[in-house]
């Protein structure tokens, strides 16, 4: 019988458990498991699961992972602020991040307020425009919720990637263009819808007058 089963049996029989579990023994067997890798190995594995990076080969993901910066944020810590100059693209490795838009142009009646737009979760990404624009001003703020881990890629990294691994850089830029194109597409749809709504609203107004 395994140690685990033995303990389970003891629990079922409502026997008294040993005061101190053999943690060191458990840890030894756990760590000697060849399938458990180090954390750095799991970043390429994490990247594999992201849709927009599907055109990368395993080796390319491994190289890309070397250029990413793992940053840890405390609960409520600001990742970046709206209106700040941005140079980084982030992937959510762990935890949640809130995207918040602040209404800074507050008049006397309407005070500056912040509006929660959406919550991003694991393997979501944000800030991709910062890599593409010459001078990129953040459109919204990002705040860590309950603490999160991010993988950041910054302009200097992209430059270095272009110099050292042009193929990977091209694939990465392709992925980022894909993200931007998708966002642009949905944005165009939204604008069309709003325009249609606006025109029908104006017609209604004219009719009622």
């Amino acid at each position: 019988m395994s140690y685990e089963d033995e303990i389970n049996q003891d629990i079922l029989n409502s026997k008294k458990l040993p005061e101190k579990l053999e943690i060191s023994v458990l840890r030894y067997f756990w760590q000697s498991n060849p399938l458990i890798g180090k954390k750095t190995d799991s970043i390429p594995r994490f990247l594999r699961k992201i849709d927009v990076l599907s055109n990368f080969s395993e080796n390319e993901l491994r190289i890309l992972a070397k250029y990413l910066h793992l940053r840890k944020f405390q609960p409520g810590e600001v990742i970046f602020k709206q209106g700040e100059l941005g140079v980084g693209f982030y992937l959510l490795y762990n935890g949640y991040a809130d995207i918040i838009v602040e209404n800074t142009e507050g008049t006397d009646e309407v005070k500056p307020s912040s509006k929660h737009i959406l919550t991003l979760e694991k393997s979501d990404y944000f800030g991709e425009l910062a890599l593409l624009q010459e001078i990129s001003i953040r459109n919204a703020s990002a705040v860590s919720r309950q603490g999160c881990e991010l993988l950041g890629l910054f302009k200097p990294d992209l430059e270095e990637l272009i110099n050292h691994y042009p193929v990977i850089a091209a694939k990465l830029l392709q992925s980022i263009s894909l993200i931007v194109a998708n966002r642009l597409f949905s944005l165009t749809r939204e604008v069309q819808e709003l325009k249609y709504k606006l025109s029908s609203y104006e017609k209604d107004q004219d009719a009622s007058n």
Partner: peptide, 12 residues
Amino acid sequence: MPQISINTKRER
């Protein structure tokens, strides 16, 4: 609604 605040002490 989440508030924007820097985790001041630790960050400082």
